[in-house]
């Protein structure tokens, strides 16, 4: 091997260094996590799609699904995304009171969604669709219930931010990323619901 040619290493090709902020790291982390959550829901939806035909002696999707109820739940969640966004915007402008108001409204809407789901589930169970009655039931309760758990966790997350603000004072620019991270998750749960109400409820009613 011949001697390597001597060359000048570049002096300073890049600007001054700083550590990435918690906001930069956390947001990237949240996006990676949400990407992986997509695969999680995909596996559940694949299960539902391949199982929903096995109704056995239990009621069928067409008999059970109540579109007005689902539409109400959908609008509740949709509205909660809007209030989340308004809350985030208030925080960005440093309007503390408005943030807290929107946070409370968002949490109430989230709980209302979970409540509606509880009502829906109990109705179905009373009408004979238990998780072990048919594989439609099993996969339906698993998929939709899993999404409901996501919403519940989202409410807990928002509540934790609420408590944080109550204890430590208004969200400063240095802590804004906490709310941003939670909001990304909250929107994502709504995105998943769009897929679920289309694939499960609307297509279930159609076919």
């Amino acid at each position: 091997m011949s001697a390597p040619e001597v060359r000048t290493l570049e002096a300073t090709p890049v600007g001054p260094y700083r550590l990435p902020t918690p906001a930069e790291n956390t947001k990237l982390g949240i996006w990676v996590w949400l990407a992986s959550d997509c695969a999680l829901f995909a596996a559940l939806i694949a299960t539902y799609v391949s199982m929903h035909g096995h109704v056995g002696h239990a009621p069928t999707p067409q008999q059970l699904f109540d579109l007005p109820l689902t539409a109400t739940a959908t609008f509740v969640l949709l509205l909660s995304s809007l209030t989340m966004g308004l809350g985030l915007e208030a925080a960005q402008h440093g309007e503390h009171q408005r943030l807290m108001r929107w946070l409370v409204v968002t949490m109430i809407l989230g709980l209302a969604f979970v409540g509606l789901q509880a009502v829906e589930f109990t109705t179905y169970v009373h009408r004979g669709l238990t998780p072990d009655a048919s594989n439609f039931g099993a996969s339906f309760f698993t998929l939709v219930g899993f999404h409901g758990l996501h919403v519940t966790f989202g409410v807990a997350w928002l509540l934790s931010i609420f408590i944080f603000v109550v204890r430590k004072g208004p969200l400063g620019p240095r802590d804004l990323w906490r709310l941003e991270a939670a909001s990304l998750y909250w929107y994502f749960v709504d995105v998943v619901w769009v897929v679920i109400f289309t694939v499960v409820y609307l297509l279930g009613k159609v076919s």
Partner: peptide, 28 residues
């Protein structure tokens, strides 16, 4: 260059204004 800029982007730059939020909500 990703994190060698002089200033980090302020967290939550106000890009989604109320108007955009409402418009998107109505469309949705």
């Amino acid at each position: 260059q990703l994190h060698t800029g002089p200033e980090p982007r302020p967290a939550g730059r106000a890009v989604g204004t109320t108007r955009v939020h409402l418009l998107v909500a109505i469309l949705l």
